[in-house]
Design a protein around this nucleic acid. Structure first.
Length: 304
DNA sequence: CCCCCCTTCCTA
DNA sequence: TAGGAAGGGGGG
């Protein structure tokens, strides 16, 4: 299963496969959302992983909570409860589980992101099945990517330079961009017509659509970003939204669009849809490789 | 619900 | 410590 996705390139990233289990944290698992099923385990299997609905500190804290049974003071419960609740919240909050996506997963995600910055619900769900990630994880990943993309633009294209200038410089810096550009513009097979059209018709969109190719979600990141210098106002200006209009999420929800993630995958891979449908849940590395032959996976050269 | 945006905090 | 997945607030 996804393990396949995770471990092929062992040396540099052995983390991928076991990154999640070591975490002593009892799987705070999705915030009581349904995404528990595929959930977590970018890399390895969920089997052992107790599927406890809402285990973890939450429960413990809840149970231990002193006020639960006692509550002698009938008068101050509300405020006290509130406080206690918040305390719990804080404690629970701290136990975040940070998934480490495998290189294979990232590769596929990146490839998809090149073509589409916004996925429909269905597309996300399909992608989540393919990658054995939760829907929420997919959604979050895309959101984070968009933000990174934006920051990258900010960084590379200061508002005082014009779009074309920025474009070329960026392309020069990140070779992958050109292919991304092409992907967005050229893919007129119908599946991505929405995006292609937007791309073609909207000058600002051009700026946005092709701009980013995240090799490994890190490459482009300027070193200074963690600093406050990149906060708030830094990109909160006109250029901030350059192309944003064209990216409006609404676009993606054209229901009659025939696109599905699998179809998209097939478009890339040239395989038959049926094959995919017969394997609803998991895909081996080979399958993924077949489906996404040219996803710019960050396979370590030495590992291949 | 989704999005954007900022923040938190885990992992390498 | 940097990078980034995930949390959470605010808006539509």
């Amino acid at each position: 299963m996804s393990v396949d996705l995770a471990s092929p390139q062992s040396p540099p990233c052995p983390k991928a496969s076991n990154s999640r289990e070591p975490s002593p944290v009892p799987e705070i698992s999705g915030p009581e959302e349904h995404y528990a099923s595929l959930q977590m385990s970018p890399a390895e299997t969920p089997h052992t992983e107790t599927v406890s609905p809402l285990p973890s500190s939450m429960d413990l804290l809840m149970q231990n909570s002193p006020d639960s049974s006692t509550s002698p003071s009938v008068t101050l419960p509300t405020s006290v409860e509130k406080t206690v609740k918040e305390e719990r919240k804080v404690q629970v909050k701290k136990q975040k589980i940070r998934t480490v996506f495998s290189q294979a997963q990232l590769g596929i995600l990146n490839e998809r992101f090149q073509r589409q910055k916004y996925l429909s619900l269905q597309q996300m769900q399909e992608l989540s099945k393919i990658l054995n990630l939760s829907y929420k994880q997919i959604k979050t990943w895309f959101q984070n990517q968009r933000m990174k993309c934006k920051r990258w633009q900010k960084y590379n294209w200061p508002e005082n330079s014009d779009c074309m200038t920025r474009k070329s410089s960026a392309t020069a810096e990140y070779p992958g961009l050109s292919s991304c550009h092409q992907g967005c513009l050229v893919n007129t097979s119908g599946n991505f017509s929405v995006w292609s059209n937007q791309t073609c018709n909207n000058p600002t969109w051009n700026n946005q659509s092709w701009s980013y190719h995240s090799w490994n979600s890190q490459t482009w990141c300027p070193p200074a970003w963690n600093n406050q210098s990149w906060n708030n106002q830094a990109w909160n200006n006109q250029f901030y939204g350059c192309g944003e209009e064209a990216l409006l999420p609404q676009i993606q929800f054209q229901q009659n669009r025939p696109v599905s993630d699998l179809e998209a995958a097939l478009e890339t891979a040239g395989e038959s849809y049926e094959v995919m449908q017969q394997n609803p849940r998991y895909y081996s590395t080979q399958q993924i490789m077949d489906l996404f032959p040219n996803y710019s996976m960050n396979i370590q050269p030495d590992a291949m």
